[in-house]
Amino acid sequence: MYGWIWRHLPGPTPVRVLEALVLALAIIALLMFVVFPWAEPLLPFNNVTTPS
């Protein structure tokens, strides 16, 4: 999959590296600001109890 993405990025190698970095940062931002907040209420981690 990563090879497919690398082959389809336009430009010479330095430009491809920059484009791949921007693409990775955009995916991380999408996960952090959209996907994780949406999924957080659905996860069972809110019911934390500590023994007395």
Results as ranks from 00 to 15, higher is better:
1 M>S: 13
1 M>F: 14
1 M>D: 14
1 M>N: 09
1 M>V: 15
1 M>G: 14
1 M>L: 12
2 Y>P: 05
2 Y>M: 12
2 Y>R: 10
2 Y>G: 12
3 G>M: 00
3 G>V: 00
3 G>H: 15
3 G>C: 12
3 G>K: 09
3 G>Q: 15
5 I>Y: 04
5 I>Q: 13
6 W>S: 05
6 W>P: 05
6 W>K: 10
6 W>H: 03
7 R>Y: 03
7 R>D: 06
7 R>E: 04
8 H>R: 14
8 H>S: 04
8 H>I: 06
8 H>G: 06
9 L>R: 04
9 L>Y: 02
9 L>M: 09
9 L>A: 06
9 L>F: 10
9 L>W: 01
9 L>C: 09
10 P>F: 06
10 P>Q: 08
10 P>H: 05
11 G>C: 04
11 G>P: 05
12 P>N: 11
12 P>I: 03
13 T>A: 10
13 T>V: 15
13 T>L: 15
14 P>L: 02
14 P>Y: 02
14 P>H: 05
14 P>N: 02
15 V>Y: 04
15 V>A: 10
15 V>I: 14
15 V>D: 00
15 V>S: 08
15 V>Q: 12
16 R>W: 01
16 R>F: 07
17 V>P: 00
18 L>W: 08
20 A>R: 04
20 A>Y: 13
20 A>V: 02
20 A>C: 11
21 L>K: 13
21 L>Y: 04
21 L>D: 10
21 L>R: 11
22 V>T: 01
22 V>Q: 11
22 V>P: 05
22 V>E: 13
23 L>S: 13
23 L>A: 11
24 A>E: 11
24 A>G: 04
24 A>C: 11
24 A>T: 14
25 L>R: 01
25 L>S: 09
25 L>C: 09
27 I>H: 14
27 I>F: 12
28 I>H: 05
28 I>E: 12
29 A>P: 04
29 A>V: 08
30 L>H: 11
30 L>E: 03
30 L>V: 09
30 L>W: 08
31 L>T: 14
31 L>N: 14
31 L>E: 15
31 L>V: 15
31 L>P: 01
32 M>Y: 06
32 M>E: 07
32 M>L: 15
33 F>Q: 05
33 F>E: 07
33 F>N: 02
33 F>D: 05
34 V>M: 05
35 V>F: 12
35 V>M: 03
35 V>E: 00
35 V>T: 11
35 V>S: 03
36 F>T: 03
36 F>S: 09
36 F>C: 09
36 F>L: 15
36 F>Y: 12
36 F>M: 10
37 P>Q: 11
38 W>L: 15
38 W>V: 15
39 A>K: 01
39 A>N: 03
39 A>V: 11
39 A>C: 12
39 A>P: 04
39 A>W: 13
40 E>N: 08
40 E>T: 02
40 E>S: 07
41 P>H: 01
41 P>I: 02
42 L>H: 14
42 L>Q: 09
42 L>W: 15
42 L>T: 08
43 L>C: 01
43 L>D: 03
44 P>E: 07
44 P>K: 00
46 N>V: 01
46 N>C: 00
47 N>A: 12
47 N>K: 04
47 N>Y: 03
47 N>D: 15
47 N>V: 00
47 N>W: 07
48 V>I: 14
48 V>N: 00
49 T>A: 06
49 T>W: 02
49 T>K: 09
50 T>N: 08
51 P>M: 04
52 S>C: 00
52 S>Q: 09
52 S>N: 08
